[in-house]
Design a binder for these strands. Structure first.
Lengths: 136, 136
DNA sequence: CTGTATCCTGTGAGATACTG
DNA sequence: CAGTATCTCACAGGATACAG
């Protein structure tokens, strides 16, 4: 199925749906982390630099709900919870990896393109504090 | 390069950066549309169902800035502007397609997982308004 | 340790109106 | 037709405090 099918809402919605998960950087991080094996909550939190407890919890819940991540509670004291990828989660790892590779391969090109673009438009574009053209 | 490298900030940032573009559904749509050939502004607007003029403009600007999309102005009356993919944009199409395929293939599984999850948690837990912004 | 509830802020994004 | 500017609202997400 090609990308051209916006009118075909079924696929379009599927993609949007998945994109909402993929596009979330924390989800991607979590899937990446867990691809190396199961981890506990705080292990994840430590390894994923910059994630807040709240976001990690929400991310994990969403991933779990979508059937991508498993959550195993060990009713001990202190409590222990381990997260891992489901089979579905593992298959998702592949397209994500493709994207990761693409990013690594082309990030520089993008940066360069941005610089070029900005340079190109610095001449054309006017300063930010310009409201009306009243007097000047 | 594996996904495991959050500590390795270079790749991590590259990924985040790219993800910010990929994660945006309009960007994905535009790239998808343009993969079939160049289109004019309003052609895009019509074909991408639900996009506002504003968002389409912003999306196109970002894609152009990132070197993924070309913008060609024909100084006619009425004005005509055509958008197309750059080579870089085309290469991006491939991982995106992989994701698209994954979505198509696994969307049902995800839907099912969600239903299962919701059912599983309706018994255990019974909070109707799960979002904090709900009742206020 | 593993979460949930709350507050607060910035930003994303639609609607609308105007310009060239 | 193509695009910019502005207003507005909702929501994502960080910080924090509390609970099991």
């Amino acid at each position: 199925m090609s990308l051209k099918d916006t009118s075909e809402n079924a696929n379009c919605r599927a993609m949007s749906d998945v994109l909402n998960r993929i596009g979330d950087k924390w989800s991607v991080m979590v899937v990446g982390m867990l691809s190396g094996g199961t981890l506990r909550f705080n292990e994840l939190k430590r390894q994923i630099n910059g994630v807040s407890q709240r976001m990690l919890t929400l991310t994990l819940r969403n991933l779990e709900r979508d059937g991508l991540v498993t959550r195993t509670i060990y009713p001990e004291i202190p409590p222990r919870v381990e997260y891992g990828l489901t089979d579905l989660g593992k298959t998702l790892g592949e397209p994500i990896n493709a994207l990761w590779d693409w990013s690594a391969a082309n990030h520089e090109a993008i940066i360069a393109a941005r610089l070029a673009y900005d340079a190109r438009h610095k001449e054309t574009e006017a300063p930010p504090a310009r409201k009306y053209a009243g007097a000047a």
